[in-house]
Simulated assay, not measured.
Amino acid sequence: MPAFSMDGEFIIGGVFAIHYKELTKIHSYTTVPEPPTCTGSVNSRELRLGRAMIFAIEEINNSTELLPGIKLGYKIYDTCASVSVATHVAFQLSNGEDPVIQTGHNCSNLGVVMGVIGASSSTPSIGISRIFGPFNIPLVSHFATCACLSDKQQFPTFFRTIPSDHYQADALAKLVKHFGWTWIGAIYSNTDYGRNGMASFLEAAHKEGICVEYTESFYRTDPKSKIQTVADVIRRSTAIAIVAFIADGDIKLLFEELNQQPSPPRQWIGSEGWITDLQFKLDHFL
């Protein structure tokens, strides 16, 4: 079910990772599987984005000039930062939730989802876009930056209000060169966002004459031993600057692991995926 919803003549969908992860369940296949649920702490940035969407729709409905005589509604879902949940949500938004099949000649298109805002990361947006494409449902993302999503043959109904990582990777390489960090480490999320973004950065860094001591990747659902391994690489390395093309939920786990046994001082250069998260205060930086 939606985290927030309101009826209207036309529905705007919302897809936000309000929680950091999905609750892992083991199905016995002897009963009907339970629907996916979220666990972990609340992502306050995503919650604010969802509330901002609600505020915008209410302002439109209260205006006598923007859409007079039309009431917009919304259905905002929590994806738990999970691709499988995001895909489940995409089908919900495409098909609706009413199990009753309408009959007769009075069927109406009112209340259908006209478009969707989200998601806040690239991999869920890829999954959702592949489902929405054949139905011509637009997905407008404010934060999915993977350059792969610019391919209109694969994602004809995907749009965004933020530049792709092609430009960010180039800017990060120029920033690193500007400050004279020619020997760096590289950390990235093991997702479409992290892999594509880091590949673009490494190509740009090579052109700028920047040497990379190591590249390490992980994802928030990896075993703790994997995150410990990445932290150990950082502790043993000689590079004092680290470029992190990584999501906020992933860097949060890495910082927690590094805080257990702090490494020598490091300069972090972050991508937009986590550097804009207000939850990361100065005491998180090493």
Rank of each mutant, 00 (worst) to 15 (best):
M1S: 11
A3F: 09
A3M: 09
F4C: 01
E9S: 08
G13T: 03
A17E: 11
I18P: 00
H19N: 13
E22S: 06
K25N: 07
I26T: 15
E34W: 01
V42Y: 02
R45N: 12
R51C: 12
R51A: 04
A52T: 07
A52M: 09
T64N: 11
L66I: 15
L67M: 07
E97Y: 09
P99F: 06
Q102P: 00
H105G: 14
N106Y: 12
S108W: 03
G118M: 00
S121A: 15
S125F: 08
G127M: 00
I128D: 02
I128P: 07
S129E: 01
R130N: 13
R130Q: 15
G133F: 00
I137P: 02
S150I: 04
Q153N: 14
F155A: 05
T157P: 01
T161I: 15
Y167F: 13
A171E: 10
F179N: 07
T182C: 05
W183I: 05
G185R: 11
I187A: 08
G194N: 06
R195G: 03
N196V: 14
A199Y: 06
L202D: 01
L202C: 07
Y214P: 09
E216L: 05
S217R: 04
K224N: 13
S225W: 10
S225M: 13
I227N: 07
T229D: 14
A239D: 08
A241G: 11
I242E: 09
N259W: 08
S263W: 03
P265F: 02
W268V: 02
L278G: 07
Q279H: 08
L282W: 03
L286Q: 06
